[in-house]
Design a protein around this nucleic acid. Structure first.
Length: 618
DNA sequence: ATTGAGAGCGCG
DNA sequence: AAAGCGCGCTCTCAAT
């Protein structure tokens, strides 16, 4: 049972729709302010709340203390059904692109991204889901404060935000779209897989909104301590931190450069180094490390600290975690493979050296869980390669390292060879150790290697490939075909041909990786969907909720605070850490079964219970 | 002043 | 050791 929530001229529309897409009751229009009550009283009946974009509705509900169990995000679902080969022969996919294809993700409210997206110059050709015309235009930001939070950034959201109409005047009819999607599922070649994918995608959208709402606990004082220790005290605006300034001085001395040399200017620095005879042809870390010259040590140290200062320094702290929480702006399904992306704050590349600032609240703790060697295990299951799966299976409950297991089969000599060999197989490596051991892996695990090879060949032919649950890769763009075509011209030069060949192989590497990375993303989506359901269920009893009274909000129970491709962080009352650990492990088993049924593949986790994220593996 | 590129590095 | 997949972010510099 679905309830479609929509923005109507006279209020918020609620339409009951059966799983077949037929109306299942009288549509109603309610006062937008009453939506939270409506949702919370209906939550017991297992309704799937259906809306255009989760971020248009859910943040406001969370703000009122209402958690949603199940949802259907029409924008995300449409994107999957539009491109999946499993639903290619359905009315939805055969219809031309429409308003639902032009939607862009709605940013979570209250953050810098929401304000930035209101600028009319963003996303030419695409329209945000809210109507620009009805929202006061923010003042244009200057370059220097582009990343700073400001007063007045809040935009209307949830029931107050117009969602029925787009900026270009096209209308979105959520009920009609739901009906089209349910029909597409029914008519697809693998309804079960696609249904699971859409459910997982929408559950992910709920989890992302919840993680944004709760925020990642962030100790600004510890972060400042890390920075001060590494860089010296926070400098006045426009100046370098003391340690960076000192290193800049040493760099100039080592290459006899004038005090005006700015080490941040790559061309200038490279020229000065050439003049001093350092022999560097780039400033890449791993190339500098090969050189022997007095400038190398201070330069490498400078680069490291410079990175910390510019990417995760005091400005970052002010912008992204000013109040003890880092509120990540996840973009669910933001990567072609189905992985999440993020905007702002670099949430998905949080450097290890600042993770010490991620500290649990007093009386609470983190459960940090990481799926060990997720992608090779996914590949083994995807290819139904029993021998590779067996290499990764845990013996007597011990946490088996899959790469060690591969070594134990005798296929390769060392763990390192197993690792780079598998990575090369999944990424399409053609050189070095990875290429050397590939034939041995192919002999030992023919099914698994064959799967990625076939995916690569398909991509090279310009075909789509598809993940376990049905997410298909995009077709190469028009310029791809143009380059291919030009290689077949009568007068095609050698470089046109080699360009075409290199492009072909490159797309093959993309599709080769797509099936593995994309299926791993689906496993992870199922994992967090299961975790969030389990945490909610266990929290009800343990949080001391009283029947008849308002339930304890999700962020006063064990709850997800971070998700990073194959890793989660749960923030939980310390006393519940063991129970949380059990549930997180059970969720991993459940995810494996959902994707691969009874195929005997293990997805072991490494789990740490810790006050600080820095202690949770690395 | 603003914008787009290239370089480089962080994460999985 | 620095190839091969997927991202976001910040810097400089040249073009507008």
């Amino acid at each position: 049972m679905h309830t479609v929530i929509s923005r109507e001229p006279s209020g918020t529309g609620l339409r009951p729709v059966s799983d077949s897409g037929a109306p299942a009751g009288e549509p109603r229009v309610i006062d937008p302010a009453g939506l939270a009550d409506e949702v919370s009283t209906d939550e017991s009946s297992q309704v799937r709340w259906t809306w255009d974009d989760t971020n248009n509705w859910y943040p406001a509900l969370l703000a009122e203390g209402v958690r949603v169990d199940r949802a259907h995000d029409l924008r995300l679902a449409h994107a999957v059904l539009r491109t999946s080969v499993l639903s290619a022969r359905t009315a939805l996919a055969e219809a031309g692109p429409g308003a639902w294809d032009r939607l862009v993700p709605v940013p979570p409210p209250g953050g810098p991204t929401a304000a930035a997206l209101l600028r009319p110059d963003r996303h030419p050709g695409a329209e945000p889901l809210f109507d620009l015309g009805e929202i006061a235009a923010p003042t244009t930001r200057s370059g220097t404060d582009r990343n700073s939070r400001r007063e007045g950034d809040e935009r209307p959201s949830g029931p107050d935000a117009p969602s029925g109409r787009q900026g270009n005047g096209e209308t979105l009819d959520p009920a009609a779209e739901l009906a089209a999607q349910l029909a597409a599922l029914k008519d697809s070649t693998e309804p079960g897989r696609l249904r699971l994918l859409l459910a997982a995608e929408s559950a992910g959208a709920l989890a992302a909104a919840e993680m944004h709402h709760a925020g990642l606990p962030w100790r600004g004082d510890i972060h400042d301590e890390i920075l001060t220790e590494a860089l010296g005290p926070r400098p006045r605006p426009g100046l370098r931190p003391a340690k960076l300034e000192a290193l800049a001085h040493r760099i100039r001395e080592a290459i006899d450069a004038p005090p005006t040399l700015n080490p941040d200017s790559h061309p200038d620095l490279l020229r000065a180094m050439e003049y001093a005879g350092v022999g560097a042809r780039s400033l890449r870390k791993w190339e500098l490390e090969k050189l022997d010259h007095p400038v190398i040590a201070p330069l490498l140290e400078y680069k490291g600290l410079y990175r910390l200062y510019t990417a995760n320094g005091w400005n970052w702290l002010d912008t992204w975690a000013p109040d003890g929480r880092f509120r990540m702006e996840y973009v669910v399904g933001g990567v072609v493979t189905g992985r999440w992306a993020s905007t702002g704050g670099g949430a998905l590349s949080l450097p290890h050296n600042v993770r010490r600032a991620v500290t649990a609240d007093p009386g609470w703790t983190f459960v940090v869980a990481d799926a060990a060697q997720l992608e090779p295990r996914v590949l083994a299951a995807l290819a139904r390669d029993e021998r590779m799966a067996a290499a990764g299976r845990s013996k007597d409950g011990a946490n088996t390292d899959m790469y060690a297991g591969i070594v134990a089969t005798g296929a390769v000599e060392s763990r390192e060879h197993a690792k780079v060999g598998m990575l090369g197989a999944m990424y399409g490596g053609t050189t070095g150790v990875s290429a050397q051991v590939l034939p041995r892996l192919a002999r030992a695990f023919p099914q698994a290697i064959d799967l990625v090879e076939r995916a690569a060949r398909a991509g090279e032919r310009g075909e789509r490939v598809t993940t376990r649950l049905g997410r298909s890769s995009p077709l190469p763009g028009d310029s791809w075909a143009a380059v291919q075509g030009s290689a077949f011209d009568e007068d095609a030069g050698a470089d046109a041909q080699s360009r075409a060949r290199s492009q072909t192989r490159s797309w093959g590497r993309f599709t080769r990786n797509f099936v593995v990375q994309g299926t791993a993303a689906e496993w992870a989506l199922c994992w967090i969907a299961s975790i969030r359901r389990r945490l909610w269920a266990m929290g009800e009893a343990s949080a001391g909720a009283t029947p008849g009274l308002a339930p304890v909000p999700f962020d006063r129970r064990p709850h997800l605070v971070f998700f990073l491709h194959d890793e989660v962080v749960v923030h939980a009352p310390a006393a519940l850490a063991e129970e949380v650990t059990r549930e997180v492990r059970a969720a991993a088993e459940e995810a494996g079964r959902l994707l691969f049924g009874d195929f005997p593949v293990d997805f072991p986790l490494s789990v740490a219970v810790t006050e600080s994220y820095a202690d949770g593996k690395g």
